[in-house]
Write a protein that binds this DNA or RNA. Structure first.
Lengths: 186, 186
DNA sequence: CGAACCTTACTAACAGCTCAGTAAGTTTGA
DNA sequence: TCAAACTTACTGAGCTGTTAGTAAGGTTCG
């Protein structure tokens, strides 16, 4: 599954053959199919394994709530920068599953809905506590925050020499703190 | 090329065969190859045609400079929402070309560098005019703005029922105006 | 005539997947 | 204790379908 992750991340689901997955683990192609049944089975096994970790982390961040939770995004960026293949996997597979009939379309729909719920809860907690300004729509802000992280990551994956992902996230989080906080800091 | 655009957008470059492109225009596969030589030739023809329009629009927006330019992003969002296939094409092909050896890797690297330069110039113009606050790094902000638009569009493409792209862009642009403007508006 | 445009026919490579068989290890029963 | 029965984890061969691309030939039009 580690091999499949790396190959799916670099060549996409459609672009990787079972023969290459098999040869990189030192067995034959039917040997891999014995364990996962089909290629889609392998895909599901890989993404579900990783998604559980990712969503659990998102829930932990959301539980902190408000400004503390937002500041945790920087830690998440540091962790992500150390695992570019994992970020690439999700970016590549997302784009391969925009269409309704993609092999992981439903997974990604649910995945992003769950992530948005986590962020919405984070913002609402901050608003109730009087920590964050009340005139921002949590639903719209959640799309913005998740989208910004994904979009900046995409530019970093494409051109790591030109884009410093961690620096971009730090600057964005600073903006969020400045804009979302109830009382201006400076 | 319109057919290829739609197919590349929905099935990706790797996922579309020349036979399907050909059949949808009513000729055979070698008939298509006669015009574009290879499949990569067709890809280049499609993306270069559309990229010229896209970059010209970005330059026009950037020329306005400062707050007026930022407000133009809303108009861009309205236009994009009417052409989901075009947005999907670039999102899908970007993800297929993260790797150095992708058939359009170099194009996308240059494309995003050019877009970032346009946004940097837009911000710097506003700062020189005293319209935008001077303590934001234009390079980092450019990655953020382009990334946010891409990332929000991705969520919209994946799940149009759950994500209202135009509303998200309007909210984000409002945030930008509030945060980037030198004097707070409210 | 001759160039533009397209067809039919083909090739070599590769895709996912099935099937039959096998070697090794584990469990069960007298 | 020893062997039969069964499970696990594969291999090798092969099936069917599809891929991009080529070679050669023919039609249409100026």
């Amino acid at each position: 599954m580690d091999v499949a992750l790396t190959l799916f991340a670099s060549s996409g689901y459609r672009g990787t053959g079972m023969t290459e997955v098999a040869s990189q683990v030192g067995i034959t192609e039917p040997g891999v199919l014995y364990h996962f049944g089909t290629k889609v089975g392998l895909l599901h096994a890989v993404i579900e394994q990783r998604a559980k970790l990712s969503q659990a982390f998102a829930r932990d961040v959301a539980e902190q709530g408000g400004l503390a939770g937002i500041r945790e995004i920087v830690a998440l960026a540091h962790r992500s920068a150390r695992e570019p293949d994992l970020i690439k996997l999700f970016a590549v597979l997302l784009a391969e599953n925009f269409e309704d009939d993609g092999p992981a379309h439903d997974f990604f729909v649910e995945h992003y809905r769950a992530l948005r719920v986590s962020v919405v809860e984070l913002i609402e907690a901050g608003q109730l506590r009087g920590e964050l300004r009340a005139d921002v729509d949590p639903a719209l802000k959640a799309v913005e925050i998740l989208g910004t992280l994904d979009g900046m990551a995409n530019q970093w994956l494409l051109d790591p020499e030109a884009v410093d992902f961690v620096a971009c996230v730090e600057a964005y989080v600073a903006t969020l703190e400045r804009d979302l906080a109830l009382a201006p800091l400076s």
